[in-house]
Amino acid sequence: MKPFHVDLTPFLNNAGTCTAADRTGGFTPVGSCYPAEHLPAYGSAVVFEDKSFVFPVKTAEGYDNMELEAQEIGVPRAAYHQIDLLGACFNGSYFETFELLLDGQVVHRFQVKLSNFGNNEGWFGEPTVIRCPLIRAKNMDLTNVTASIYGHFETLAEPILFDTIRAGDNPFMHIFAITLRGDF
């Protein structure tokens, strides 16, 4: 199956990564971030087992991930077999319903489960794809906790034709990358 890396750039709305020198932004409202030096370079490939992702490119506004607000993400119209996401939550571990649409009609729903970014492991049993050895707070690095990005891998029972992904409406779940796979 061929991968299609969805370009999330128009939908990025949160600055969740920062450096020690520039701590602006915040994955959480109080300004805690992933430490950029422990993450893949912006725009680089991330490979986990047999899956590949593209880590987002930071926008001019400094955004690097998508906080869920029921965004509708257009994708090439095709039959896909697999939907893989990288993401994490804060102040909780959440499940959210995502919808697949074709010509504006919902053709499939599935649940994405992602854990709190500061967990030691996924609460739902989902795999940790990236783990940073610290959480970067506004005024210090918290080295007794880790910051993780988890994977949610959704295999469809049979290929489904769709042209849009509608995200859930939960600003405490964040997505860094989406890869679709299919024979298109």
């Binding site: 804060f90 102040n91 909780g92 600003p171 405490f172």
Partner: peptide, 12 residues
């Protein structure tokens, strides 16, 4: 979960 999201939104 929806109460927790609500709690977080109040914080936000």
């Amino acid at each position: 979960q929806d109460y927790l999201i609500y709690s977080n939104l109040c914080l936000k």
